[in-house]
Write a protein that binds this DNA or RNA. Structure first.
Lengths: 254, 254
DNA sequence: CGAGACGTTGACCTCCTTCAAGAGAAGTGG
DNA sequence: CCACTTCTCTTGAAGGAGGTCAACGTCTCG
């Protein structure tokens, strides 16, 4: 199959589900309108009456909410291949915003296309359901991570999640991947101060779990990092239908 | 319309959406199997291969995750009228558990019923979509609450949410409602220690926002409590289609 | 090459946790 | 109905994880 605008999406879905040409075609058909965004630009702003869903195909984005006094919380990160706002159908205005963390490209999918695919009962529709389920599972994990883990655990856990997700869509190479996110943004995702994120990252580096060079992160000791994080990847639901691949390092004790 | 097993659900959906007899009938038709649970009993256990959805019609429940070292995080609370696990279709095992916080009654809805209603394009199907959307919005709010608010703000915020939700399904009376939840459970929901929950609740009482008597909570100063919490109820999406009622106390400044 | 964003490090402080002990509630059995 | 256990809540004291403030270093990009 030749190169396609939605390749990151196909790659992601293809990672764990066997989906044939028909399904690719069905997914491709909902593509919708292409938009480019600069670093810092909002894809969705709080209050928007949008009735569209999105697929990110290039760059990273983040969903966030700002409190009235300026405190900010990042809800989750979005990588190429991620679809979101799939169930925006009856929204009465977005209760949060989505911002581009890098230059990014997204397709805006009209509501009808999503709905008809959802209800079609096809495998492509199932893929959509699965995207929604996966997104919700990551929100839940975000709650646990921030609620019951220490700063060190949180950061280790987030790095492992992002590494895993980056690999799936073909970003990064083995243990190394580009993490185009400032420490302040990590802090806003994990409910920490950026000062403490800096200290904790340095701590992980001193423990020889990770190495950082500019925005490129290398996980130098997977087992140790997983052990620190208490990371298990079941919440990512990577085996939706037909498990095709398993991660190649050992899983932690637990 | 006569009294029905699913009344709390109807009451909740009827709160903000005009739904006629046809839609009630459609919703009623998916009822499924009735089950009773004792305090502390799991409705769903981590790892279950369930392919059912649920409606709670009596009692309270909570979705939670326990880490391997025993730390526990409550993800959200479920009140009568709440439906959940609507998108469990492609799940490969629950990544969390659901426990009854009181004696509780729930209906187990078979997957097909949910799917066909979802895709039917009816107003009853829309109600289901809306339930899923609302549940996700509450998860997001939980992230913000725990990530970027102080203990005092968190507790105030949670109390306001639970009060609001209890009112909607006809539990509680004006400013008073039954909060059948131990302080340890509140702590597990808010990422705090139960000791600090106790202190903070006492603090709110000293500030004359609330009064507690056994498990009954009275909000004695709504405006102050909302001010402390920074509470706005937009995330509850109470105006899904046809706004029917607005809260009768003033909304906070911002 | 300069400016502004981002990252680092130190000192100090505070919010929350942990530990501990005791007081109420609430369920259980005689 | 009362003793008994057990869970839940309260309060105090001490310690720690992480926040805030501030200054300086470093990257990146126009």
């Amino acid at each position: 199959m030749r190169r396609h605008d939605l390749d990151p999406l196909f790659r992601r879905i293809g990672w764990y589900a066997d989906i044939g040409d028909n399904e690719y075609a069905a997914l491709a058909s909902i593509k919708g309108r292409r938009e480019e965004y600069n670093f810092g630009e909002d894809l969705v702003s709080r209050g928007d009456q949008t009735t569209e869903s999105f697929v990110i195909v290039e760059g990273w984005a983040a969903r966030y909410i700002t409190l009235s006094d300026g405190r900010m919380q990042v809800l989750n990160f979005m990588l190429p291949g991620d679809m979101f706002d799939l169930q925006t159908t009856f929204s009465t205005g977005a209760d949060h915003s989505v911002v581009a963390l890098t230059r990014a490209v997204a397709f805006h999918i009209p509501q009808r296309a999503v709905l008809s695919l959802f209800s079609g009962g096809t495998r492509a529709g199932a893929a959509l359901w699965w995207c929604a389920l996966q997104e919700e599972a990551m929100l839940r994990e975000q709650i646990v991570r921030n609620g019951r883990r220490t700063a060190r655990e949180r950061i280790a856990h987030l790095l492992l999640e992002l590494h895993r997700r980056a690999l799936i869509v073909g970003e990064g190479d083995g243990d190394t991947f580009r993490l185009p996110v400032s420490q302040a943004t990590i802090a806003d995702a994990l409910g920490l101060s950026f000062v403490h994120v800096s200290r904790t990252l340095s701590g992980l580096q001193k423990s020889r779990c990770i190495e950082r060079k500019s925005k490129v992160l290398t996980i130098t000791d997977h087992l140790l990092l997983r052990d620190i994080a208490g990371f298990t990847e079941d919440y990512l639901h990577l085996d939706a239908r037909a498990p095709k691949l398993r991660f190649d390092t050992a899983v932690p004790a637990e």
